[in-house]
Amino acid sequence: MNTTDNRNPRRTILDRLRSQSVPHVALPNLNAGAWIEYADPVQQFTEMIKLVGGNCQCIDSVSSVAKHLGSFSQRLEAKRTYSAVEGIPGNVNLGDCHDPHELENLDFVVYEGALGVAENGAIWITDRDLRHRVVFFITQYLVLLVRRTNIVHTMHQAYAQIAPPRPGFGVFLSGPSKTADIEQSLVIGAHGCRELQVFVL
């Protein structure tokens, strides 16, 4: 029955749950859904990023991104920069960094997302091959690259395509960090990055 065994709460909880009858419902098939499809997913993606407070630009190549960033004031002012994208330089080497706290003053991070989602402007990034995932959150300014061929319509397609690193970390990031906790006034730049720039390649 439902006795409490303080030494074994696991058994207590499971026994309690197993003693109850809950009507069975079949798990629905999600592949059959008629989900929204956008006429131009890249344009929808771009618009959503702007809606959530980010900047988005379509560009032809990584070298163009590098050239573009050369004139970014945030980049020029940045003292510590990290880039995981080949062809875009950074001056912080995560291999030398043993403790994530050393990244305290990171100003500028460039990373490539595996996938973009048109319905909400989210970009999937993981810490596969990344020593310190804190770079996504501690940096003041974040630049993300996404290939236009990797932009899907909805989260259903997104989740079907990605596999989470196990073990590991993955995040759908949509826009810069924000809060509206003071009188519902939107303020960009809460605890994570203060600005987000996305380049669609």
Binding site: L51, V52, F137, G170, F172
Partner: peptide
């Protein structure tokens, strides 16, 4: 794959955002 349904609903229902800024997945 069930996450796709809930993530589409959660932020839209909560604050009228298409998704929260960070939807983080931790494995280990």
């Amino acid at each position: 794959i069930d996450l796709s349904v809930f993530i589409r609903l959660l932020a839209r229902s909560a604050t009228g955002q298409p998704i929260t800024t960070y939807t983080s997945h931790f494995h280990g």
